[in-house]
């Protein structure tokens, strides 16, 4: 007996569905249930049904504000540094050097972000860059434990995530389009603005989305390079789960974070649709 196609497809999707349920929906459901519960007197979770945790969300307003300020700035800064790098790698570098330079971009990822962030403590600390600046007559510049240090750490930590999508987009950009643009009377820099940049937008959007989403949940870099003075939602979550062990409130904060991210992703998909014109099967070969 032959299965109907839709039934066959349903069966084929079962493993994926189970995977999805187990790895994504189940933990999310637990968090959702917790968020309506209460903190037990000694910490942890006590069952219940209350909106008290959500009502208390304004208590973490500052954390959300800090995150929603630094995450876009960090994403933008990463983009501004990553784009020229990706462009250089994809367009300017000969194939011989390309592999080597790409590996150099990845290599730092082989070390824990913790260790790499600690390296920045020394670079930004009193005996690092500020000491060099002091030699140049700029006395008493504080870099470590400032929002700037967090920004540096963020850009450094997430740079490869931004570089690679842009690199891929630029790499597959048909160079003949640039010849066509030049042929139609466009000087190189205007060709970049009118052809290269718009056609690399999918890579830019992917990179921004990756970095932005991960930044929204970041806690390590603010804790290490912000000296505990820069407080993200991620830090609030760590404290709520591991210090005050207020799991119910922590879950509500986590749900709120997910909601914020969903809004961002929704805006993102709209942006993608706008640039969705870029498809590969356009006769570019």
């Amino acid at each position: 007996m032959a299965m109907t196609p839709s039934r066959a497809r349903g069966l084929l999707l079962t493993p994926a569905g189970l995977w999805y349920a187990a790895l994504l929906l189940l933990p999310l459901a637990v968090v959702l249930i917790f968020s309506f519960g209460e903190r037990s007197p000694i910490g942890g979770y006590a069952p219940g049904f209350t909106f008290a945790q959500y009502a208390n969300l304004p208590a973490r307003f500052a954390a959300f504000r800090n995150t929603l300020t630094l995450a876009p700035i960090g994403t933008l800064a990463a983009l501004l540094i990553a784009y020229p790098l990706a462009y250089f790698l994809a367009v300017k570098v000969t194939p011989k050097w390309k592999t080597l330079l790409l590996v150099l971009v990845i290599v730092p990822f082989w070390t824990s972000i913790l260790i790499r962030s600690y390296a920045w403590i020394f670079l930004l600390g009193g005996k690092g860059i500020p000491a060099l600046l002091a030699h140049l007559g700029l006395e008493d510049i504080r870099l470590l434990n400032t929002p700037f240090a967090v920004l540096v750490g963020i850009v450094y930590g997430y740079l490869p995530l931004m570089v690679f999508p842009i690199y891929v987009a630029l790499e597959k950009l048909d160079k003949r389009l640039l010849e066509a643009s030049a042929d139609l009377g466009t000087p190189p820099w205007r060709s970049f603005l009118q052809i290269t940049l718009p056609l690399s937008m999918p890579g830019v959007l992917t990179g921004c989305m990756l970095v932005f989403i991960l930044l929204m949940g970041e806690f390590l870099i603010p804790a290490i390079l912000g000296g505990g003075k820069v407080f993200f939602v991620g830090n609030a979550l760590v404290d709520l789960f591991l210090q005050s062990r207020n799991w119910a409130f922590g879950s509500a904060v986590a749900v709120a974070l997910v909601v914020v991210m969903l809004v961002v992703v929704a805006l993102y998909s709209r942006a993608v649709k706008r640039f969705g014109a870029t498809r590969d099967d356009t006769g570019l070969m």
Binding site: R39, P41, I42, G43, A59, R60, A62, A63, N66, G228, K229, F231, N235, A236, D239, L240, Q243, S244, N246
Partner: peptide, 16 residues
Amino acid sequence: LTDPNRAELMARFKSA
């Protein structure tokens, strides 16, 4: 150790 008000105070201090 377990007082919720102290925990919230700490969060306000750190996010201030």
